[in-house]
């Protein structure tokens, strides 16, 4: 197959970027999208041009490194699929494909398709954990956890932190990301102990990182490679409301 690629090129965070057009010939339908870009990069290198920079590592849809908007949709928009798992057999021969970085104020471009997602790390640092130190945990089977709860927690915990939800949202909101972590930990008895403190801190960090507000358009859920459900945002809102009530109640006491 052959494709025409329009790829966002930007030298660094301070430079202006622009689209460059490349021809990708000899594409094997069994290639992944990133392997196709690898081949384009090989030909750029052979011509002495700088290859297109993009993040990737596991190339099996779990590390969350790959992050590019393909034809206007984060990860290319195939259901439950990251860019590294998107295969070329899904494209038409001769098609023109645009490739851009995540676009969000809280995710500044580092170079070409690479953005800075450290805001997500800071949200977790603010409270996305259970405060237990190593040593001293009781036997793992002391607290039974109903299977449906464990499954629901796992549905939320699957988030790979790629940021597609933010890239898809017109407000660049990080609600789905935060909701997934808040829900995962609030559903489990181990995480319930500090759930109020956690949700307040994480939401505060989210706001201060410059992510936008959620207007529940659902575009995040639609592109999430792990199909994290919008229901978790509802849960986040509830958790937040309860925590807020509790905290004002406490300070009044």
């Amino acid at each position: 197959m052959k494709l025409t690629l329009k790829v966002w090129r930007q030298k660094d965070g301070d430079s202006r970027g622009e689209f460059a057009t490349y021809q990708a010939n000899d594409i094997n339908p069994d290639m992944s999208f990133l392997e196709m870009l690898d081949e384009v990069n090989e030909s750029l290198l052979a011509r002495g041009e700088e290859p297109i920079a993009f993040d990737s590592d596991c190339r099996e849809g779990i590390c969350g490194a790959c992050s590019m908007v393909i034809n206007g949709l984060p990860h290319g928009g195939r259901k439950a699929t990251t860019a590294c798992q998107l295969h070329m057999r899904l494209f038409e021969d001769g098609e023109t494909v645009t490739v851009e970085p995540w676009r969000a104020r809280a995710f500044p471009v580092v170079r070409d398709l690479i953005v800075d997602r450290s805001g997500f790390d800071r949200i977790i640092q603010a409270g996305g954990f259970v405060s237990v130190s190593t040593g001293g945990a009781q036997d793992a089977n002391v607290i039974p956890i109903p299977k449906p709860d464990a499954e629901l927690a796992m549905d939320a915990a699957q988030c790979i932190g790629c940021g597609a939800c933010v890239a898809a949202c017109k407000n660049a909101s990080a609600m789905l990301f935060v909701a997934a972590k808040v829900s995962h930990l609030a559903i489990l008895p181990q995480g319930r102990v500090e759930k109020n403190r956690r949700v307040l801190r994480m939401v505060e960090a989210m706001d201060s990182e410059g992510f936008g507000n959620c207007t529940v358009t659902g575009s995040c859920e639609a592109v999430c490679p792990k199909e994290i459900s919008l229901n978790f945002i509802t849960r986040l809102n509830q958790e937040y409301a309860v925590a807020l009530l509790k905290s004002t109640g406490q300070s009044a006491r």
Partner: peptide
């Protein structure tokens, strides 16, 4: 101890219907 600690951290291991790992 690893399993104990990971469960305490909130790792959502698979469970049986009785709630056990």
């Amino acid at each position: 101890s690893i399993i104990d600690h990971c469960v305490a951290q909130g790792v959502p291991f698979a469970r049986e219907y009785g709630g056990m790992l």
